[in-house]
């Protein structure tokens, strides 16, 4: 299991290759990358991601351990950035490795659903006009119920 919370950028392709090479015999690897979305008006100057150092690592580790146990994963990778990002920058990625694809897909979705509303990150969108905290959505909380 590899959990990283970092300010610096990462190369999702290189990370996926390294993860794949490490997960010998896994049979199935699923990855998801979250990218900074521009505003509808296309005027995003930057996105600032705040987090709660200490709790962030702890919350993600708890979620990843649950996924690993529940789907018997060979390996799990979670990388999540904080600090200032620009439109189209990778924010985060998860990758899961398992014997068969269903477990890898389900575990990746589980991880994403829980990271969205249980890992202490807060996004703020800065445009030329204003600075707005991104609000959580009811469906993010609802998404947890299926697990």
């Amino acid at each position: 299991m590899d959990i990283r919370v970092q300010g610096s950028p990462f190369d999702a392709g290189a990370e996926l290759n390294a993860f794949t090479n490490k997960a010998q015999g896994a049979g199935a690897i699923v990855s998801f990358s979250g990218i900074v979305r521009d505003t509808a008006a296309g005027d995003l100057e930057k996105m600032v991601i705040e987090h709660y150092p200490g709790m962030t690592e702890r919350a993600i580790t708890t979620i990843a351990e649950e996924a690993q146990g529940r789907w018997n994963l060979a390996d799990v990778l979670v990388i999540h950035r904080f600090g200032e990002l620009s439109a189209n920058d990778p924010i985060m990625m998860v990758a899961t490795a398992s014997r068969h694809r269903k477990a890898a897909f389900e575990a990746a979705e589980f991880l994403m659903d829980f990271l969205k509303s249980r890992a202490p990150f807060w996004k703020k969108e800065i445009t030329g006009k204003d600075a707005v905290w991104v609000e959580s959505k009811d469906h993010d909380e609802d998404a947890l119920k299926r697990w």
Partner: peptide, 10 residues
């Protein structure tokens, strides 16, 4: 003790 709005990670 920490207070914050609902989280918006991912």
């Amino acid at each position: 003790v920490a207070f914050f709005p609902p989280m918006t990670g991912g």
